[in-house]
Design a protein around this nucleic acid. Sequence first.
RNA 1: GGCCCCGUGGCAGAGUGGUUAUGCAGAGGACUGCAAAUCCUUGUACAUCGGUUCGAUUCCGGUCGGGGCCUCCA
Length: 465
Amino acid sequence: MDLKITNTLLREKQVFTPIDPSNVRVYVCGPTVYDYAHVGNARPAVVFDVLIRVLRDLYGAEHVTHVANITDIDDKIMTRAKERGVAIEALTHETTEIYNADMAAIGVNRPDVQPRATGHVGQMIALAERLIERGHAYAADGHVLFNVPSMTDYGQLSRRDRDEMIAGARVDVAPYKRDPADFVLWKPSADDQPGWDSPWGRGRPGWHIECSAMAAEHLGEVFDIHGGGLDLIFPHHENEIAQTRCAFGHATMANYWMHNGFVTVEGEKMSKSLGNFYTVHDMLQEWPGEAVRLLLLSAHYRQPLDFSKAGLKEAKTQLDKLYGALHRAANDGHYPDWNLDRNDNPVLAALCDDLNTPLAIGALHQVARELNIALDHHRSRQIPELMGKLLVWGELLGLLQGDTDAWFKGEAGDDVEEIEALIAARIEARKDKNFAEADRIRDDLKARGIELEDGAGGTTWKRAG
RNA sequence: GGCCCCGUGGCAGAGUGGUUAUGCAGAGGACUGCAAAUCCUUGUACAUCGGUUCGAUUCCGGUCGGGGCCUCCA
């Protein structure tokens, strides 16, 4: 099956053709680690996690290399470390750990390589030197700057030309710049700022250079897909392209550029001043990670997505339904059949059409309905295949991989024995037609957040919420 | 000013030149001791005005409305 993706470079949907099918190479811009990841950081992580799952399905798990960086040198990090009175390394290390734990909780697989900017300063310096040698950069006043006019076709990704950029510039042009559009590859550090020795004195890298250096180091000078948030198109990705192409002399840096849309919170743009930042960490206190993930996948990745409590609730409800079908089937003693027809996979088909996750989720719902119907009518022969479809297809989206019992009952608590004793007592009461007592037990449990369901195969329970 | 995106039924959200998205919520029904869960049924949806067309929500243009980016924010 062909994978089609919207390539920002051309602004159109294209069939994806890898440079080397035995090693499909993807780079995704990762977080700057100075604070808890918010739901806006989580969207690209989840979206590109799905892309990687699809690529692994199409080309083989071992034939895909996924690189996502950690930006651990940045002025915001320096500021935050100073505010908190902690060492920069301690801050970035701690934040990285939290980021990885939060992403794991929402079903994001770790990238094959998670390079840190501070581990690649040597490569960045080498890249800057190379750009100077080739006449695309110059040193001035302790800085090294990329000279934008030296690249004749600068601006292809963001479709803006140099003059427009200058006309719209919101900042004052630094005096050491030869051209107002020039951007920093390297800048000097004061004594109290982190810095590395370089041919231009002690300093630190500019923002864009790290991704050029790390992508080249781990994926080569030209690779397949580069992803990130819409906001990175300009200047970040435009400048990455400029650096990499001018340094290595290729017509492209990555053949396909993919960008996810923005996340709003409760209908409003997230902002510090509105105080409406939803961190993944906070969401996980109240909701299953899988609900966060489903919500993030419930809109097409290029569309804006509103992340709301109501949306989380619906995502949770949807998962209850999907897991419910699997749970029923398992409780009825059925096991999934893993031997599915690879040519009949609407979830993969939907995802191959530019990662149409909403359509894919719809397909999952259809399977769940079919499974419930099969269970209702005791069509045992169909059940294993339907279970297999939910599980195998769900895995492409990173959904439904959890234990169904755990989904409904939570982590085994010490009240389980008591709950089951009460249920047994209720079953006895029902046998005696003592419905008043049976209902009392059910109501008591309900008050404790335990809901009972009397099915054909007996009474099951789950924790509400 | 430049570049770009969006406007679908109560809500979320796909898609399509002529036939059902899907989910949530609501209504009715089946099942149930009653519930819950599940299943079935149920909604004259495509901002507006023109144009192209046998036919447009889908293509083109205008208008209105909303949003993003324009040097370090995913």
